[in-house]
């Protein structure tokens, strides 16, 4: 579906020299030899800190941007994205979380009709597809509302329809959940899963929301400073990042932090947080077994409840970024 090899992109930017009218020419490397393949039907999470090259990659794959001429190769749907723009974009769908594909002043329904015509979807097929998407995304309440008057959640659902009216085998979602409230986020995730199962749509998802990634992506690509740092499953990413595990304890009685620290320190446990009735401890999963850790942890305490788990994804990613000095 997607085949990328040694893809590079360098921008030329002009920086004003302070106090002078002259400008300095700078070459900025956005992508520095990226390679990966995506098979049909995959959902791939594409993550990395701001400025890592995520958007640049999406823009190249969707045909908006040309990569550096003398480097690498890139095939999407068997096509070079920047060679025949119109043919290429007819086979992909793109949703930008912060921009709209819809006509601001038109009711969403009319935008869909317009897009259907633009993608040359036969009217009957377009109607049928729209009816199904409409049901799946529950658009009935606002399909005749002008886009400008919609809430962000409503608009995002319409954006998805707009990107799917031509039933593309490949869908790019660029920060689709940005700014959405919790129910909208969950509805969005459910829809993405449905779409992937039902239609076998390949989905490339860039986001900063690690819960999205955890819920959706069976495979994660991590990019930083224009280089691909990791390519694998979420579980592998965890192992890669650290083997840190967590014990979260609800306390029946308050505890003294200094005393606890003196107890845990030599026994391989670390206090992550202690707030009134909640204590979070961390330990190295490769040094201690879970049962050992629990035994050590509860000894100085009156315990109301206890749970064991991995490091939260957000922290894991932050640790990973820190390790790669991103």
């Amino acid at each position: 579906m997607i085949h990328v090899e040694q893809l590079s992109k360098t921008y030329t930017v002009y920086k004003r020299i302070p106090g002078s009218l002259r400008r300095q020419r700078l070459a900025v490397t956005a992508l520095d030899g990226i390679s990966f393949n995506v098979s049909p039907g995959e959902i791939v999470g594409y993550i990395g800190p701001n400025g890592a090259g995520k958007s640049t990659t999406i823009k190249i794959l969707s045909g908006i941007l040309h990569p550096d001429r003398d480097h690498g190769s890139c095939l999407v749907n068997g096509r070079v994205p920047w060679k025949n723009r119109q043919a290429h974009v007819a086979g992909i769908g793109v949703v930008f979380g912060q921009r709209t594909q819809l006509w601001w002043d038109l009711p969403a329904g009319e935008s869909f009709g317009l897009l259907g015509d633009m993608y040359r979807v036969p009217p009957a097929l377009s109607r049928e597809r729209l009816a199904r998407l409409r049901r799946e995304l529950d658009l009935d309440g606002f399909i005749d509302t002008p886009v400008r008057q919609m809430s962000l959640g409503q608009r995002m659902r319409c954006e998805l329809v707009a990107a799917l009216i031509h039933n593309p085998p490949l869908l790019f979602l660029d920060e689709p959940s940005i700014g959405l409230d919790a129910p909208s986020k969950i509805a969005l995730r459910d829809f993405i899963v449905w779409l992937n199962r039902q239609h076998g749509t390949t989905i490339i998802l860039t986001t900063h929301d690690m819960d999205d990634i955890e819920a959706l992506a069976r495979r994660v690509l991590l990019i930083g400073k224009g280089r691909l740092l990791f390519d694998g499953s979420m579980a592998e990413l965890r192992r890669e990042a650290s083997d840190e595990k967590r014990v979260t304890i609800d306390l029946a009685e308050p505890a003294d932090e200094a005393a606890l620290r003196a107890w845990y320190g030599p026994r391989g446990l670390r206090i992550v947080a202690l707030r009134e009735h909640r204590l979070v401890l961390a330990y190295d999963g490769s040094a201690l077994a879970g049962t050992e850790a629990i035994a050590v942890a509860v000894q100085p305490l009156k315990v109301a409840d206890l749970s064991l788990g991995g490091q939260p994804v957000e922290e894991l990613i932050a640790a990973l970024y820190a390790r790669h000095k991103l």
């Binding site: 045909g63 723009r85 119109q86 007819a90 930008f96 921009r99 594909q101 993608y119």
Partner: peptide
Amino acid sequence: NGNFDRLLLRPLP
């Protein structure tokens, strides 16, 4: 405002 990209994503001259 980056909306030119949107035009580039549509299969129309």
